[in-house]
Amino acid sequence: MNLGLKLDGVGFAYDGTPVLQDINVSIPAGQFVSLLGASGSGKTTLLRLAAGLDPVASGRLSWNGVMVVGPSLERGVVFQDYALFPWLSVVDNIEIAIAKAKPTVRKADRQAEARKYLRELGLEAAIGRYPGELSGGMRQRAAIARALALGSPLLLMDEPFGALDPVNRARLQDLLLEVWELATPRKTIVFVTHDVDEAIYLGDRLLVLGSSPGRVIADLQVPLARPRERRRLLDSHTLQALREQVAAALVEDTLQRLKAA
């Protein structure tokens, strides 16, 4: 049984300025958590700490009971700017992930597996192409395919759909939910976003960060059954109520900061 992601009094400072302060959160395995907050509230920093890309300055951060001290294949990341290697074809970008996740698998089998992931994400046509030749939506699909290929039980996603147009965005949200809901056991996902509706549509739970320094100002459950239907969700009272709660928390945070200043 996976013990999930645990943050105990986690803090982080950049050049002496506190970015995150006293974050206490426990995310059980298999939960889809949407991480909301204004720009500069430390959402990306929190994700980098969980990924092990930066070390925590204070407190304890553990995944499945083990302290996070550096990156690991246990914790996959989908970056905001895709971060595919532009000098590798799409399929080779995926294959390099498989090669690291399963070092004993032979090259031909790795290629076959990479193709499988790309087909799953509707990227058959892009297999031999290079990231520079693809649209933003296709690149992000490839980035997700690579994260899936790593086989990490924890996925950290940093505004992965932030740069996409609304149609592509909705499509990829549905695709992500579909892939996530079908897998057993389900992956644990921490999904950073600016978009409240996206956070509610995708998440089991909303974590809202306040700014300067970043700390949790709201922790809300999303009581909506899955699979979710986009159209019905849009005019549900639950959605309205959650929106208002998130907005209220952010307004309250802003007012407090103005008072302090």
Partner: peptide, 24 residues
């Protein structure tokens, strides 16, 4: 972002030089 990416993938020092630093 390419450095982070290489770290996430857990590339060895040589793989990092060969597949990331050299082409970049």
């Amino acid at each position: 972002r390419y450095r982070d990416n290489a770290r996430i993938l857990g590339l060895t020092r040589f793989e990092y030089q060969r597949h990331v630093v050299l082409p970049a």
